[in-house]
Amino acid sequence: MGALVTTEDQLKERIKELTCLYNVSSYIANCNLYDLEPTFKAIAASLKAAILYTEEAFVEMKLGNELVHAGQRLQDQVFILSAIKVFNLPYGSIKIGYPKSKFNENVFLEEEKQLLKTLASEIGNLIERKQIIDKEELTKRQMARSDRLAILGEITAGIAHELNTPLANILGFSELLKERFAKDKDALQDLDKIMNSAIFSREVVKKLMFFSCEMPHHMELVNINPIITEAINLLKPNFSKKSIECHLQFSEEDITLRVDAIQLTQVVFNLVINAIYFSPKNGHIIVDVSNQPKELVLNISDEGKGIPREISEFIFNPFYTTKPVGEGSGLGLSVVHGIMKSHRGTIKHSFNKPKGALFTLTFPKI
């Protein structure tokens, strides 16, 4: 099978192939880059229609982890295949075939083999275009987020400076009033409430200053292992309440790094307290410290619900929280972000397979 007897038969096949190329070019030109599945299905169907024995043929496109079919795929088959490459790297393949019980390897026309190669190249170019656009959009979002955080940092720094003086005045005058009303218990209780509220507000201001990188820090070369261990030990009661196991692992017994020890404690404390909050009972939290030649990498993972994609770009913003009212100020992660920035480090988050969240912190060795 496979020979074209007449010139008319040959002409019909050329028309089918040219129609396929035209249709595919049209599909690609008008495709939705955010949903390519309909385009790939249309390409597969168009290719099937262009093959000599259309009714018997099947088409299979392997695109990364996805498969697209046209026609009935059988176990025993004869087929030809062309690789799909994206930026000169293997990405998938496109295959056309027939049932082995009716056809042999000689059934395929040279023109069909060339058509297959052409379509593989066109599909590769389409995927390249999508990946370029995806990367451009990701870069734009990251730049826009950095700009927003920079502006937010300037605003919060200004707010923090403006609030420091009146808060200091509230605390100072409250102390004077306590001396004046030393014998009035009700007045003293009210003054204690005022002072406690002012102290709480001052702590919020400190966190705002951490986010905006306005807090002074004392950098020194220290062994960070006991600092991280102590920060986690402070949370033992929290682990016990939910029967959570925390696995702390260091790549070396002594790891030295130039950091502000207090701020490093805050980073670990804030991230682990969040991990505890979102972890299920009897869950596991892993704190992994890896000393590498040019940087130190700190990974903190939990087994909670993870961070939904739609809110992932907001979690480092001040006052943004997914916790119920009264259970979180929304400043923990923004403080961590500010401290990492002041240490010229980075913080990223991802899904912790199979479930949960993973925060990766990188401290450069400076």
Rank of each mutant, 00 (worst) to 15 (best):
I155P: 02
T346G: 06
T165Y: 12
I244A: 08
F181V: 06
L74F: 13
C20T: 04
S93F: 13
F278A: 05
I96M: 06
T156H: 04
L248R: 01
F250G: 01
S25Y: 13
L149Q: 03
K135F: 12
E110S: 13
L152W: 07
V86N: 13
P166Y: 10
K341P: 02
K135I: 12
A182H: 10
S121G: 13
L36S: 02
Q131E: 14
H343E: 10
V259T: 01
K16H: 15
H217Y: 11
K41C: 05
S212W: 04
R258P: 10
Q77L: 13
E303L: 00
F210Y: 08
C246Q: 02
V86Q: 09
D134M: 15
I94L: 02
K102M: 11
E56R: 06
S240Y: 11
Y277C: 05
P38Y: 03
K113C: 12
V59D: 03
R180T: 08
L177K: 11
K183F: 09
C213E: 14
L74C: 12
S240P: 02
I273C: 11
D184M: 09
H343T: 07
P280Y: 03
D9S: 14
F210S: 02
K48M: 07
T360E: 10
V336I: 12
L18W: 07
P308N: 03
R148D: 09
Q114L: 12
S350M: 09
M143T: 13
